[in-house]
Design a protein around this nucleic acid. Structure first.
Lengths: 346, 346
DNA sequence: TTAATTCATGTTAGCGCTGTCATTTCGGGG
DNA sequence: CCCCGAAATGACAGCGCTAACATGAATTAA
């Protein structure tokens, strides 16, 4: 046994060295590997040894170095998570689900935000893969070919979230936005609405809003109707935009009897507009959102909308991948579904 | 030079091996260190060599292994981030700021959520420190002694966010919630309000809400007033709770002329209650929040509140630590301030 | 022409940990 | 009393990369 505390000359002498396995082993008078085994709970260990070692660990405040551990075993406990934004409450909710799923197994999410930009996403994917994560979770399907190739060849499990209207690389978890849009149309038609207005935001970055729109239009089409009016804001969805866009819609198409919004943020703005303009939701004008956000349900009039299960999407993705760490032969799709919330605005 | 492509027998033979520096070096006919230098942009490199190597890198789709790099150089590009929750929009906003600050330098946040639990936080701190992050960002000051010790002895830079009403381990970035509370009181008194009601949530986990309350009470006290009524919900803050608690407050103390809410979520609920109950904000009852959330400013009546700069808090913390990677001799405090938003509800 | 520089690249020795074999110890069956 | 197998522990190499020092070629100074 070579002197365990002998340290390389490479170490900078400033500050106290962080404690390593070797230090703990020396103190407990066992080999490094024994400490390692005890800390990882593998192999048969005598109780007396375990006690001695744990005492040393506690006394020295040893914190294992997962970087070294990961390199040695090539078993990482990091999971890459790439989402387009944190401003839209939907994504923090997904992240919550991811976190909840990861928590019990000690995995940690490393987060990247794309700002809805595919090039940023590409860089992020490379940057996160460099950490050799155990898996990668990414929102959406809109990747550059390079991104797709990197994810494909990484070999780790890849979950593409939110959407299931496309074929994933490995695993998709989400709901059919097209179907949700279609069902929105069916539901509102059943309720007797006929003159549909659409209030949307810039969907160049929001493929899913577009899908819902397409589904809705299809439903109208199948019933022999078309949109009576549309108002789209340039920027991203927001309550303010919903408010002003509903105003714009009603000016250009005063005769619409229901306004479908690209999401709840917009729809809440619509409700606010009604309050200001003296319009009674449902009686004068139906209002319908998408997502089922808390704020919509806390309004004086509960917003009529479709609930997407964001938390569940995140948690399911994690659970599925934890359960099976090898990619299945064929891509798998998990539909977390949605449900119509019969609120008081449509 | 030993055969560069000679691979250990330890490698499992299944699947294609990930490409390593050594593979790239072999292909470009240079040593590993040369590739490493080129990729990191250090040292003098001949243009011809650089081209040859970059070509090999591209052709092979090489992605550097940051785990190995970190171990070898003990320079990590991970930053630990610990926040209590993602449900409260405030923390995603801080995280956005953190991300914005980290982005340009290629650092990545590793996230942990405490759920407002100090024991969870303790575990998270250990778990994140195990990744040898370059720095650690943590919300609040309420740590267990063990947590504090670990952060202290880690040697890396530590930022404690949101709050500056205590002495940090290293760096605090935030605002004085006590002062914000005090200024709320001064402001409302100046506006002529005298009979103050308080609508709050469980502050056992929300030290900052308590601080604001204390500051507010102090302001009233200094002016010779006291609270005319209080209504506290058991759980966390929410719009729904704000609604029902304002109702409760007005039942028990019908004569209050202004209701101060523990935050904007609660206050928005209060506004909704007024809408339902036929109370005209400001004229019949002043309503005042805290945070300056978008939703409050998008209401038909802009919420009167105090804007806390959450995004800025995150970004400032990161920028400060990136700028100086060594801990200063004495703890430093950065006040990101706040401003009164003169809305239409008080 | 020769020594001193600079530039470009290579060699060596780890970083802290874990996989893979040993090796040692001990109790009991034959 | 010896052998065998299980239990407990250890030695050693190596994960993929980089710091530090070393080397060789091309300049430049002298």
């Amino acid at each position: 046994m070579s002197a365990p505390s002998e340290r390389s000359k490479r170490r900078r002498s400033t500050g106290q060295q962080p404690i390593t396995l070797s230090d703990v082993a020396a103190r407990a008078k066992v080999s490094e590997i024994t400490v390692s085994r005890i800390l990882r709970g593998v192999g048969p260990i005598a109780d007396s040894t375990r006690e001695r070692v744990m005492e040393a660990v506690d006394a020295m405040g040893y914190v294992p170095n997962r970087v070294a551990g990961t390199l040695a075993s090539s078993v990482s406990s990091l999971v890459g998570v790439i989402i387009p934004s944190l401003s839209n409450i939907v994504f923090p909710e997904v992240l919550q689900g991811i976190n909840a799923g990861l928590e019990p197994s000690g995995y940690r999410p490393v987060v990247g935000i794309t700002d809805y930009d595919a090039t940023t996403e590409e860089k992020l994917v490379a940057s996160l893969l460099a950490w050799k994560p155990a898996a990668m979770i990414i929102a959406g399907f809109d990747h550059t070919p390079m991104t797709r190739r990197r994810l494909q060849t990484s070999g780790i499990r890849i979950a593409e979230l939110m959407d299931i209207d496309a074929t994933p690389i490995d695993l998709a978890v989400g709901l059919s936005h097209r179907a949700a849009g279609y069902d929105t149309g069916r539901h509102l038609l059943r309720r007797g609405y006929r003159r549909f207005g659409y209030v949307g935001h810039d969907w160049s970055a929001d493929r899913r809003a577009k899908l819902r729109y397409d589904g809705l239009r299809q439903a109208l089409c199948d019933a022999g109707h078309v949109f009576a009016g549309e108002a789209m804001t340039q920027g991203p969805s927001s309550t303010g935009a919903g408010r002003s866009m509903l105003d714009a819609l009603l000016r250009s198409s005063p005769d619409v009897d229901v306004a479908v919004f690209s999401n709840d943020d917009m729809a809440v703005g619509g409700v606010f507009h009604c309050m200001t303009a003296g319009i009674t939701p449902k009686r004068d004008l139906g209002l319908f959102g998408f997502n089922g956000l808390d704020i919509g349900q806390a309004l004086p009039l509960r917003l009529s909308t479709i609930r997407s299960n964001r938390f569940l999407i995140g948690r399911m993705a994690v659970e599925k991948m934890l359960q099976q760490s090898e990619r299945p032969g064929t891509p798998e799709i998990i539909d977390t579904g949605y449900e119509i919330v019969e609120g008081e605005t449509a």
